[in-house]
């Protein structure tokens, strides 16, 4: 693990940010409450970053620009259906449980379907991923706007459901536990299963993968579908945390999710990316964001910092930095 230069760099970066943050905040940063609140915020974007990472690894200019729209559409459909079904129900514990289970099932289903649509467009209809997911981004956002008419759908405080976003287990926030579980799951999927092997091979050389007998269309389809499900999970966490769902919630998360993936060492041209790197980058950015809030930076300065960091991480993670001739540029 420590032999990987990029991972080592990320670990050092995390240590440095922690040190600077502790000094700047005169120790207040190290308060357990602060770590709890950071561990609650990270998973929403972290899950989106994993979704984007998977599509990037698949190669062929892979990216899912629709993750945020998919997340919002999923929870809006779930919220509307559940609210309609349970409109007259009593507020008993049993009704709360049925509401919660149904909400999660519907949201995950809708998110998976969103991902499936992207996958069909890219893998079967031959769309460029940018174009397909740009179109579906608008489409999902549009459908969500039509369904809600614009304003947020209020979920309210429904017993077991709201603990997904707000609860904790032994002091560890549940969103963080979910993020951890998904990270381990995806990591194992990438390193231990045939699917993971095929995905990496396809991402580094689609032609070779094809001639090696890999059904590249199926691998692509599955990848985008998983991305949709992960987006829905992110939506479930954010909607239960804020007790509401909105068509254009968190639009600015897209850049940060891409930033986490690229900073984490995912190759945007495909074929490479590790969950560990992504998770470390996510933690580093979350700490940086909290530090910036601590010193009273406004959102504009944060935007500037994220943009700068994305460009810097493109430059710093590039192995050809000290070579005179770059690789032939895919754009």
């Amino acid at each position: 693990m420590l032999s990987d230069g990029h991972i080592r760099f990320l670990i050092i970066a995390n240590g440095l940010i922690l040190l600077v943050a502790a000094l700047l905040s005169k120790g207040a940063f190290l308060d357990p409450y602060n770590f709890q609140s950071m561990a609650t915020q990270l998973p929403e974007i972290g899950l989106l970053a994993i979704a984007i990472m998977l599509t990037m690894v698949s190669g062929n200019g892979g990216i899912d620009l629709s993750v945020i729209s998919s997340a919002n559409l999923s929870v809006i459909v779930a919220a509307l259906v559940c609210k309609a079904l349970f409109a007259g129900a009593d507020s008993s514990a049993q009704a709360g449980w049925s509401f919660s289970v149904l909400f999660v099932v519907i949201a995950l289903t809708v998110g998976t379907l969103c991902g499936l649509l992207n996958g069909l467009l890219v893998a079967r209809a031959g769309y460029a991923p940018i174009l397909a997911t740009l179109g579906t981004q608008l489409l999902f956002l549009g459908v969500a706007t039509v369904l809600t008419g614009g304003p947020a759908v209020i979920l309210g405080d429904i017993a077991p459901l709201s603990s997904i976003g707000n609860g904790d287990l032994l002091g560890i926030p549940i969103p963080f536990l979910l993020f951890l579980a998904v990270s381990i799951g995806v990591s194992l999927m990438l390193s231990r299963t045939r699917f993971g092997f095929r995905l990496y091979l396809m991402g580094s050389n689609a032609k070779a993968a094809h001639f090696a007998g890999i059904q590249t269309a199926t691998v692509t389809l599955v990848t985008y579908t998983i991305a949709g499900s992960l987006a829905a999970l992110s939506g479930i966490i954010s909607s239960t945390r804020s007790a509401s769902a909105k068509a254009d919630f968190g639009v600015s998360y897209l850049l940060i999710a891409i930033l986490i993936a690229v900073m984490g060492g995912v190759n945007p041209s495909g074929g490479y990316g590790k969950i560990l790197g992504l998770a470390l980058a996510g933690v580093a950015l979350q700490m940086l964001s909290s530090t910036l809030s601590f010193i009273g930076a406004n959102d504009f300065l944060k935007d500037f910092m994220w943009g700068l960091l994305l460009l810097l991480s493109i430059g710093l993670t590039d192995s050809s930095l000290f070579k005179t001739k770059p690789k032939p540029a895919p754009s």
Partner: peptide, 12 residues
């Protein structure tokens, strides 16, 4: 210089 997709660069 860094041979990254221009979408990523220009989002940044």
């Amino acid at each position: 210089r860094f041979a990254v997709p221009s979408l990523i660069v220009t989002i940044g």
